[in-house]
Protein backbone atom coordinates (compact mmCIF):
# COMPACT_ATOMS: atom_id res chain seq x y z
CA UNK A 1 0.00 0.00 0.00
CA UNK A 2 2.59 2.61 0.89
CA UNK A 3 4.42 1.75 -2.31
CA UNK A 4 1.33 2.39 -4.37
CA UNK A 5 0.81 5.72 -2.72
CA UNK A 6 4.40 6.59 -3.41
CA UNK A 7 4.05 5.67 -7.07
CA UNK A 8 0.92 7.74 -7.34
CA UNK A 9 2.75 10.71 -5.94
CA UNK A 10 5.50 10.30 -8.49
CA UNK A 11 2.97 10.13 -11.25
CA UNK A 12 1.28 13.29 -10.07
CA UNK A 13 4.57 15.07 -9.81
CA UNK A 14 5.57 14.10 -13.28
CA UNK A 15 2.22 14.99 -14.72
CA UNK A 16 2.48 18.42 -13.16
CA UNK A 17 5.95 18.89 -14.40
CA UNK A 18 4.97 18.04 -17.95
CA UNK A 19 2.09 20.44 -17.87
CA UNK A 20 4.43 23.07 -16.61
CA UNK A 21 6.88 22.30 -19.36
CA UNK A 22 4.10 22.74 -21.86
CA UNK A 23 2.73 25.96 -20.44
CA UNK A 24 5.70 27.78 -19.07
CA UNK A 25 8.65 26.75 -21.09
CA UNK A 26 10.61 29.77 -19.93
CA UNK A 27 10.35 29.07 -16.26
CA UNK A 28 12.49 26.01 -16.31
CA UNK A 29 13.49 26.29 -12.67
CA UNK A 30 9.96 25.43 -11.67
CA UNK A 31 10.40 21.93 -12.95
CA UNK A 32 13.96 21.23 -12.01
CA UNK A 33 13.07 19.81 -8.63
CA UNK A 34 10.47 17.28 -9.76
CA UNK A 35 12.60 16.24 -12.71
CA UNK A 36 15.60 15.60 -10.53
CA UNK A 37 13.40 13.60 -8.26
CA UNK A 38 12.12 11.62 -11.19
CA UNK A 39 15.57 10.95 -12.53
CA UNK A 40 16.65 9.73 -9.15
CA UNK A 41 13.65 7.45 -9.01
CA UNK A 42 14.30 6.00 -12.45
CA UNK A 43 18.00 5.56 -11.80
CA UNK A 44 17.26 3.64 -8.66
CA UNK A 45 14.99 1.31 -10.56
CA UNK A 46 17.04 0.68 -13.65
CA UNK A 47 20.25 -1.24 -13.44
CA UNK A 48 22.10 -1.38 -16.65
CA UNK A 49 22.60 -4.88 -17.76
CA UNK A 50 25.02 -6.75 -19.86
CA UNK A 51 25.53 -10.37 -20.65
CA UNK A 52 28.50 -10.79 -18.33
CA UNK A 53 26.97 -9.13 -15.31
CA UNK A 54 23.32 -9.89 -15.11
CA UNK A 55 22.11 -8.42 -11.93
CA UNK A 56 18.57 -7.39 -11.24
CA UNK A 57 15.68 -8.44 -13.32
CA UNK A 58 13.26 -5.81 -14.38
CA UNK A 59 10.86 -4.93 -11.66
CA UNK A 60 8.35 -2.55 -13.09
CA UNK A 61 6.61 -1.37 -16.22
CA UNK A 62 5.08 -4.79 -16.85
CA UNK A 63 8.29 -6.16 -18.21
CA UNK A 64 8.29 -9.94 -17.91
CA UNK A 65 10.82 -11.40 -15.50
CA UNK A 66 12.82 -12.92 -18.28
CA UNK A 67 13.65 -9.59 -19.87
CA UNK A 68 16.29 -7.03 -19.10
CA UNK A 69 15.87 -3.32 -19.46
CA UNK A 70 17.81 -1.49 -22.07
CA UNK A 71 19.07 2.02 -21.90
CA UNK A 72 17.05 4.27 -24.17
CA UNK A 73 19.07 7.19 -25.38
CA UNK A 74 16.64 8.43 -27.95
CA UNK A 75 15.02 11.77 -27.34
CA UNK A 76 11.27 11.60 -26.94
CA UNK A 77 9.03 14.32 -28.25
CA UNK A 78 5.91 15.46 -26.47
CA UNK A 79 2.84 15.33 -28.72
CA UNK A 80 -0.02 17.37 -27.39
CA UNK A 81 -2.67 15.21 -29.05
CA UNK A 82 -6.15 16.31 -29.98
CA UNK A 83 -8.96 15.32 -32.27
CA UNK A 84 -8.18 14.02 -35.70
CA UNK A 85 -10.03 12.44 -38.58
CA UNK A 86 -8.89 8.86 -39.23
CA UNK A 87 -8.18 7.93 -42.83
CA UNK A 88 -10.81 5.22 -42.76
CA UNK A 89 -14.19 5.97 -41.31
CA UNK A 90 -17.05 8.35 -41.72
CA UNK A 91 -16.22 11.80 -42.87
CA UNK A 92 -17.39 13.37 -39.64
CA UNK A 93 -16.08 10.95 -37.04
CA UNK A 94 -13.02 12.09 -35.18
CA UNK A 95 -10.79 10.29 -32.74
CA UNK A 96 -9.25 11.88 -29.71
CA UNK A 97 -5.56 11.23 -29.39
CA UNK A 98 -4.36 11.75 -25.83
CA UNK A 99 -1.05 13.47 -25.15
CA UNK A 100 1.91 11.11 -25.49
CA UNK A 101 5.63 10.93 -25.99
CA UNK A 102 7.13 9.54 -29.17
CA UNK A 103 10.70 8.63 -30.09
CA UNK A 104 12.02 11.37 -32.31
CA UNK A 105 13.31 8.76 -34.76
CA UNK A 106 13.07 5.01 -35.50
CA UNK A 107 14.99 2.46 -33.44
CA UNK A 108 18.41 1.85 -34.98
CA UNK A 109 20.53 -1.20 -35.79
CA UNK A 110 22.89 -0.32 -32.98
CA UNK A 111 20.10 -0.11 -30.43
CA UNK A 112 18.61 -3.38 -31.48
CA UNK A 113 22.00 -5.03 -31.19
CA UNK A 114 22.20 -3.81 -27.58
CA UNK A 115 18.75 -5.23 -26.98
CA UNK A 116 19.65 -8.71 -28.19
CA UNK A 117 22.96 -8.59 -26.33
CA UNK A 118 21.23 -8.39 -22.99
CA UNK A 119 18.14 -10.37 -24.00
CA UNK A 120 19.62 -13.51 -25.56
CA UNK A 121 16.26 -15.10 -26.20
CA UNK A 122 15.67 -12.47 -28.89
CA UNK A 123 18.85 -13.26 -30.77
CA UNK A 124 18.65 -14.55 -34.28
CA UNK A 125 19.46 -18.12 -33.29
CA UNK A 126 17.33 -18.13 -30.17
CA UNK A 127 14.11 -16.37 -31.01
CA UNK A 128 11.03 -18.54 -30.51
CA UNK A 129 9.59 -19.63 -33.82
CA UNK A 130 6.13 -18.33 -33.09
CA UNK A 131 7.53 -14.82 -32.79
CA UNK A 132 8.94 -14.56 -36.28
CA UNK A 133 9.02 -15.88 -39.81
CA UNK A 134 12.28 -17.12 -41.30
CA UNK A 135 13.88 -13.79 -42.14
CA UNK A 136 14.34 -12.28 -38.66
CA UNK A 137 17.46 -10.06 -38.77
CA UNK A 138 17.99 -11.63 -42.17
CA UNK A 139 21.29 -10.01 -43.06
CA UNK A 140 23.01 -10.39 -39.70
CA UNK A 141 25.97 -12.78 -40.17
CA UNK A 142 25.65 -13.94 -36.57
CA UNK A 143 23.73 -13.29 -33.38
CA UNK A 144 25.69 -10.24 -32.28
CA UNK A 145 26.95 -8.87 -35.54
CA UNK A 146 25.34 -6.22 -37.70
CA UNK A 147 25.33 -6.85 -41.45
CA UNK A 148 28.45 -5.80 -43.29
CA UNK A 149 28.06 -2.27 -44.62
CA UNK A 150 25.06 -1.68 -42.37
CA UNK A 151 25.12 1.70 -40.75
CA UNK A 152 24.71 1.42 -36.99
CA UNK A 153 22.45 4.45 -37.13
CA UNK A 154 20.21 3.14 -39.87
CA UNK A 155 16.79 1.94 -38.75
CA UNK A 156 16.48 -1.70 -37.70
CA UNK A 157 14.40 -3.76 -40.13
CA UNK A 158 13.59 -7.45 -40.51
CA UNK A 159 12.03 -7.45 -37.04
CA UNK A 160 8.62 -8.86 -36.22
CA UNK A 161 5.93 -7.05 -34.28
CA UNK A 162 6.69 -9.33 -31.35
CA UNK A 163 10.34 -8.33 -31.36
CA UNK A 164 9.48 -4.65 -31.75
CA UNK A 165 6.92 -4.83 -28.99
CA UNK A 166 9.38 -6.54 -26.66
CA UNK A 167 12.09 -4.03 -27.44
CA UNK A 168 9.68 -1.26 -26.55
CA UNK A 169 8.85 -2.89 -23.24
CA UNK A 170 12.50 -3.30 -22.42
CA UNK A 171 13.00 0.37 -23.14
CA UNK A 172 10.25 1.14 -20.63
CA UNK A 173 8.01 2.15 -23.48
CA UNK A 174 5.44 0.74 -25.86
CA UNK A 175 4.78 0.76 -29.60
CA UNK A 176 3.04 3.76 -31.11
CA UNK A 177 -0.66 3.20 -31.73
CA UNK A 178 -1.98 3.53 -35.25
CA UNK A 179 -3.97 6.66 -34.36
CA UNK A 180 -0.96 8.23 -32.64
CA UNK A 181 1.23 7.48 -35.62
CA UNK A 182 -1.24 8.89 -38.09
CA UNK A 183 -1.76 11.93 -35.86
CA UNK A 184 1.93 12.74 -35.99
CA UNK A 185 1.96 11.91 -39.71
CA UNK A 186 -0.48 14.75 -40.40
CA UNK A 187 2.30 17.24 -39.81
CA UNK A 188 4.65 18.73 -42.34
CA UNK A 189 7.55 20.97 -41.40
CA UNK A 190 5.34 23.94 -40.59
CA UNK A 191 1.99 22.79 -39.31
CA UNK A 192 0.70 19.95 -37.19
CA UNK A 193 -2.00 19.19 -39.77
CA UNK A 194 -0.92 19.63 -43.37
CA UNK A 195 -3.39 17.17 -44.81
CA UNK A 196 -5.26 19.83 -46.73
CA UNK A 197 -2.20 21.16 -48.47
CA UNK A 198 -2.22 20.05 -52.12
CA UNK A 199 1.39 18.93 -51.95
CA UNK A 200 1.06 17.01 -48.69
CA UNK A 201 0.34 13.54 -50.03
CA UNK A 202 2.44 13.88 -53.18
CA UNK A 203 5.56 14.79 -51.25
CA UNK A 204 5.18 11.69 -49.13
CA UNK A 205 4.43 9.52 -52.14
CA UNK A 206 7.66 10.74 -53.72
CA UNK A 207 9.54 9.51 -50.67
CA UNK A 208 7.68 6.21 -50.64
CA UNK A 209 8.63 5.56 -54.27
CA UNK A 210 12.35 5.54 -53.49
CA UNK A 211 13.83 2.10 -53.05
CA UNK A 212 16.54 0.95 -50.64
CA UNK A 213 16.19 4.02 -48.47
CA UNK A 214 16.05 1.96 -45.28
CA UNK A 215 19.83 1.71 -45.38
CA UNK A 216 20.30 5.41 -44.69
CA UNK A 217 21.00 6.75 -41.21
CA UNK A 218 18.26 8.30 -39.13
CA UNK A 219 17.93 12.05 -38.64
CA UNK A 220 19.62 13.03 -41.90
CA UNK A 221 16.52 14.87 -43.06
CA UNK A 222 14.48 17.69 -41.56
CA UNK A 223 12.09 16.99 -38.68
CA UNK A 224 8.39 17.75 -38.86
CA UNK A 225 6.41 20.35 -36.93
CA UNK A 226 6.69 18.35 -33.70
CA UNK A 227 10.42 17.75 -34.08
CA UNK A 228 9.87 14.14 -35.14
CA UNK A 229 12.22 12.72 -37.78
CA UNK A 230 11.92 10.09 -40.51
CA UNK A 231 8.21 9.50 -40.50
CA UNK A 232 8.19 8.76 -44.23
CA UNK A 233 11.63 8.77 -45.77
CA UNK A 234 13.23 5.59 -44.45
CA UNK A 235 10.89 2.77 -43.54
CA UNK A 236 7.40 1.51 -42.88
CA UNK A 237 6.77 1.32 -39.14
CA UNK A 238 5.03 -1.22 -36.97
CA UNK A 239 2.27 0.23 -34.91
CA UNK A 240 0.89 -1.39 -31.80
CA UNK A 241 -2.47 -2.07 -33.45
CA UNK A 242 -1.30 -2.15 -37.08
CA UNK A 243 -4.06 -4.51 -38.13
CA UNK A 244 -6.92 -2.80 -36.34
CA UNK A 245 -8.06 -1.24 -39.57
CA UNK A 246 -8.99 -4.68 -40.79
CA UNK A 247 -10.86 -5.91 -37.77
CA UNK A 248 -14.59 -5.82 -37.57
CA UNK A 249 -16.64 -4.34 -34.81
CA UNK A 250 -14.33 -1.40 -34.40
CA UNK A 251 -16.59 1.16 -32.79
CA UNK A 252 -14.65 3.92 -34.41
CA UNK A 253 -15.63 2.86 -37.85
CA UNK A 254 -19.03 1.30 -37.29
CA UNK A 255 -20.60 0.45 -40.59
CA UNK A 256 -17.32 1.06 -42.35
CA UNK A 257 -15.77 -2.09 -41.02
CA UNK A 258 -16.15 -3.94 -44.29
CA UNK A 259 -12.96 -2.69 -45.78
CA UNK A 260 -11.88 -4.49 -48.86
CA UNK A 261 -8.41 -3.12 -49.14
CA UNK A 262 -8.11 -4.10 -52.76
CA UNK A 263 -9.45 -2.82 -56.05
CA UNK A 264 -11.64 0.19 -55.64
CA UNK A 265 -13.05 -1.18 -52.40
CA UNK A 266 -10.43 0.67 -50.44
CA UNK A 267 -11.70 3.98 -51.76
CA UNK A 268 -15.24 3.58 -50.51
CA UNK A 269 -14.46 4.06 -46.84
CA UNK A 270 -11.51 6.43 -47.04
CA UNK A 271 -12.06 9.98 -45.88
CA UNK A 272 -9.68 11.46 -48.42
CA UNK A 273 -9.35 9.54 -51.66
CA UNK A 274 -6.63 11.89 -52.84
CA UNK A 275 -4.35 10.87 -50.00
CA UNK A 276 -2.41 8.26 -51.94
CA UNK A 277 0.29 8.23 -49.30
CA UNK A 278 -2.21 7.00 -46.72
CA UNK A 279 -3.55 4.38 -49.13
CA UNK A 280 -0.01 3.10 -49.54
CA UNK A 281 0.53 3.00 -45.78
CA UNK A 282 -2.71 1.23 -45.05
CA UNK A 283 -2.11 -1.10 -47.97
CA UNK A 284 1.17 -2.02 -46.38
CA UNK A 285 -0.39 -2.51 -42.95
CA UNK A 286 -3.08 -4.72 -44.40
CA UNK A 287 -0.44 -7.00 -45.92
CA UNK A 288 1.49 -7.81 -42.76
CA UNK A 289 1.15 -10.21 -39.86
CA UNK A 290 2.71 -9.91 -36.43
CA UNK A 291 5.38 -12.52 -37.11
CA UNK A 292 6.49 -10.96 -40.41
CA UNK A 293 9.95 -9.53 -40.83
CA UNK A 294 10.46 -7.31 -43.86
CA UNK A 295 13.35 -5.46 -45.42
CA UNK A 296 11.85 -2.01 -44.99
CA UNK A 297 9.69 -2.42 -41.90
CA UNK A 298 10.99 -1.13 -38.58
CA UNK A 299 9.52 0.73 -35.63
CA UNK A 300 9.79 3.46 -33.06
CA UNK A 301 8.51 3.62 -29.50
CA UNK A 302 6.08 5.77 -27.58
CA UNK A 303 5.17 6.33 -23.99
CA UNK A 304 2.19 7.63 -22.10
CA UNK A 305 2.60 10.91 -20.36
CA UNK A 306 2.30 9.90 -16.74
Amino acid sequence: MPTQKFTLQIKLLLQNSLLVVEKYKCRRFVIIVPICFLLFFIESCIKEENTEHKSEKTQFLNVPDSLYLIKANVKMVYIKGGNYKPFFGSNTATVNVKPFLIDERPVTNKEFLEFVKINPQWRKSKIKKIFTDNTYLRDWPSDLELPKNAKPDAPICFVSWYAANTFAKCAGKRLVTLDEWEFVAMADADTFNARNKPSYSNKIVDLYLQKERQYNSVKQTAPNYWGVYNMFDLIWEWTDDFNSVLTTGDSRTGKYDDKNLFCAGSATSATDVMNYAAFMRFGMRSSIKANYTISNLGFRCAKDTL
Binding site: N260, C263, M284, Y292
Partner: peptide
Amino acid sequence: DLHAVTGPGGGAAVTTSAPGK
Protein backbone atom coordinates in the same frame (compact mmCIF):
# COMPACT_ATOMS: atom_id res chain seq x y z
CA ASP B 1 -6.81 -9.68 -59.56
CA LEU B 2 -7.32 -11.92 -62.58
CA HIS B 3 -10.47 -11.09 -64.48
CA ALA B 4 -10.60 -14.76 -65.50
CA VAL B 5 -11.26 -15.73 -61.90
CA THR B 6 -14.68 -16.22 -60.38
CA GLY B 7 -14.38 -15.27 -56.70
CA PRO B 8 -13.69 -12.31 -54.40
CA GLY B 9 -11.31 -9.79 -55.86
CA GLY B 10 -10.42 -12.17 -58.68
CA GLY B 11 -7.82 -13.47 -56.24
CA ALA B 12 -6.88 -10.10 -54.78
CA ALA B 13 -8.69 -10.89 -51.56
CA VAL B 14 -6.25 -13.69 -50.80
CA THR B 15 -3.01 -12.73 -52.52
CA THR B 16 -1.85 -9.51 -50.92
CA SER B 17 1.85 -10.08 -50.33
CA ALA B 18 4.14 -7.87 -48.29
CA PRO B 19 7.68 -7.36 -49.59
CA GLY B 20 9.49 -10.70 -49.50
CA LYS B 21 6.29 -12.67 -48.90
